[in-house]
Design a protein around this nucleic acid. Structure first.
Length: 581
RNA sequence: GGUGUGGUAGUUCAGCUGGUUAGAAUACUGCCCUGUCACGGCAGGGGUCGCGGGUUCGAAUCCCGUCCACACCGCCA
């Protein structure tokens, strides 16, 4: 063994012992005749001490060590004369008796410290060095803990982890597939799974009853801070369950994870219908760490000659606590903010609720104090508050106001990363109309079951059908989503028909599932959690990248291995693939 | 596909309205230093100012194009 102890475990009670340590040279402090070396491994840092009086040869050798050299040191654990209370091993040091350089190192391109000087680019290119840094390692440790607790919880409830194939069939619905050519079947292609959806349903037909898998999924869409082309899901499915059973069981899992990983009790999760979420927050994943709910002012603003509001389908207001003291400059800046193309509002109307009970608005020309007072009362505003109004098309103005609400929540400090508010959003619409392509498409996926009482609208009023579908939302982030599935072949056929699949297309793409449903498919349903997002939320980060060991950049490139890359003509020939010029 | 921000020493950045020998910090190299832990001191090396074009007597700086990174919109059943 290269080492008898790791670099994080020696304490005052080990004084006098002779130990062997191995690790990386994090830092060297050289006083000439006295030199200290910080030796680092994943467990911590231990100080090595070299002294001219004790051993001149060893001292010289220590003074030649560069950063990130890999060394083994044998020596005696000694109490320090000057202790360092900042690190757990700070009471002791190793007076080195033997030093062996196991490997040298180039000078690293950025400093491998908690606070690195490296930018994203260089850190990704040398990710293996970045991973030596404590914060990044902590993130991966956290990820490991979360995975372990998921397995713990589900294992105790008789869930079985089953692996499903990665080379599967492409389906044009939903996200773009990653495509893999088949050498043995020239001209044909596998797709990588966007999720193991159909396989887990087949496992239910097989009687596995309770399945889960912590599994890689692939989607060939543009990236974001919280979206990677390959990502990990906690994928679950159960038989003989109704929506209520799934919500309860996975609410339990969520509570378990928060308790075990964060030491936080998130309590009972509220439930909110999709319609309520859209109406109160303009968003199907509301951040309920704060209120600032939407107020509808249509009936109060009409008929006063303010043309913008007269012609608007919807006039919305939110109330920002204690913001009546906003300066003209701040209000102008906020107006510019909502007018950015990403938000797309035409303008912003404000009302200041002054301390003396008077009101000052940007539309004083059209509305008197009584009008403004009525608005303020509708919004539940108190003296000192600021009303912010947006108007326009219902759908758009909700979306814009949702962005503004989140921004104001941020500015007011209501989005504390150490506070966790989770909820279920339920009763999603089954389908939404895609005006561009003049067709309905599934809000969740084509296997989601309509609520039984809405089943008869499948052919008459699809937009009004609610689905047995649900999302787990935490702090405004969609962490999980699932549904009760269709297990009846006829209902599934009607669903495919609604989505514009011909019978042949449905059979070609999902025939295996339809066939399986002819052999006794149990009622079943499930849910999938975004594992990376869950980890980044536990870690208090907005980006999932630092919770993935080797993530991809904005262009979907792995900067370290430089993938994707060209392949040799020989490989293309074997695949019978020609590249277009 | 679009919007925004950025690209200058190994690294992180400053360099504004055009005129400097292109700087700072840190890292690196050498020398000095016996109790540091972000050690300190002295000295030194290090630059295709992303790339291409243009304007100008003169461009890191202004303009156009392009590439790259990040954030966002579209997209993500």
């Amino acid at each position: 063994m290269y080492r008898s102890h790791n670099c994080g475990e020696l304490r005052i009670e080990h004084v006098g012992q002779t130990v062997r340590l191995a690790g990386w040279v994090a830092r060297r402090r050289d006083f000439g005749a006295l030199t200290f070396v910080d030796l680092r491994d994943r467990y911590g840092i231990t100080q090595l001490s070299f002294n001219e009086e004790y051993n001149k040869v060893l001292l010289d050798s220590a003074r030649s060590l560069g950063r990130e050299f890999v060394v083994q040191a044998i020596g005696k654990v000694t109490e320090r004369s000057n202790k360092n209370s900042k690190i757990p091993t700070g009471d002791i040091e190793i007076v080195v008796e033997e030093l062996q350089i196991l490997n040298s190192s180039l000078v690293p391109p950025f400093s491998i410290e908690e606070e690195t000087d490296g930018g994203d680019d260089i850190r990704m290119q040398y990710r293996y060095l970045d991973l030596r840094r404590d914060p990044v390692r902590q993130n991966l440790m956290l990820r490991h803990q979360v995975a372990r607790q998921v397995r713990n919880y589900l294992d105790n409830l008789q869930f079985i982890e089953v692996e499903t194939p990665v080379l599967i069939k492409s389906t044009p619905e939903g996200a773009r597939d990653f495509i893999v050519p088949s050498r043995m079947n020239p001209g044909q292609f596998y797709a990588l799974p966007q999720s193991p959806q159909t396989f887990k349903q087949l496992l239910m037909v097989s009687g596995f009853d309770r399945y889960y898998q912590i599994v890689k999924c692939f989607r060939d869409e543009d990236l974001r801070a919280d979206r990677q082309p390959e990502f990990t899901q906690i994928d679950c499915e159960m038989s003989f369950v109704e929506q209520e059973d799934i919500l309860n069981l996975f609410e339990g899992m969520t509570r378990h994870l928060f308790k075990e990983v964060k030491g936080v009790d998130i309590g009972t999760l509220p439930r909110m219908t999709f319609d309520d979420a859209m109406s109160k927050y303009g968003n199907d994943k509301p951040d309920i760490r704060f209120g600032m709910e939407f107020n509808y002012l249509n009936d109060l603003v009409k008929g006063k000659g303010f043309n913008v509001f007269e012609t608007a389908e919807c006039v919305l207001a939110i109330c920002a606590d204690n913001c009546a003291n906003y300066t003209r400059k701040q209000l102008d800046e906020l107006t510019e903010w909502v007018k950015r193309p990403q938000i797309g509002a035409k303008g912003l109307v404000y009302v200041m609720c002054n301390a003396d009970g008077s009101y000052k608005s940007s539309v004083d020309k059209f509305y008197n104090q009584d009008d403004l007072k009525a608005w303020a009362e509708r919004c539940g505003a108190k003296a000192g508050d600021l009303l912010l109004l947006l108007s326009g098309d219902l759908h758009q103005v909700r979306k814009q106001m949702s962005e503004l609400r989140l921004e104001m929540g941020q500015r007011l400090g209501y989005r504390d990363k150490n506070v966790f508010k989770a909820l279920w959003v339920i009763d999603f619409p089954l389908v939404e109309f895609d005006a561009d392509n003049n067709r309905w498409h599934a809000m969740h996926h084509p296997f989601t079951s309509p609520k039984p009482e809405d089943l008869d609208k499948l052919e008459t009023d699809p937009g009004a059908i609610r689905a047995n579908a649900y999302d787990l939302v935490i702090n405004g982030v969609e962490i999980g989503g699932g549904s009760i599935r269709i297990h009846d072949k006829n209902v599934q056929s009607r669903m495919f028909k609604l989505l514009g699949f011909s019978e042949d297309e449905a059979k070609y793409q999902f025939g295996f599932l339809m066939n399986a449903f002819e052999f006794g498919a149990p009622p079943h349903g499930g849910i999938a959690f975004g594992f990376d997002r869950l980890c980044s939320m536990f870690g208090g980060a907005d980006s999932i990248r630092d919770f993935i060991a080797f993530p991809k950049n904005n262009q979907g490139r792995d900067m370290m291995i430089d993938a994707p890359s060209n392949i040799e003509n020989k490989q293309l020939d074997e695949l019978k693939i020609a590249l277009k010029a």
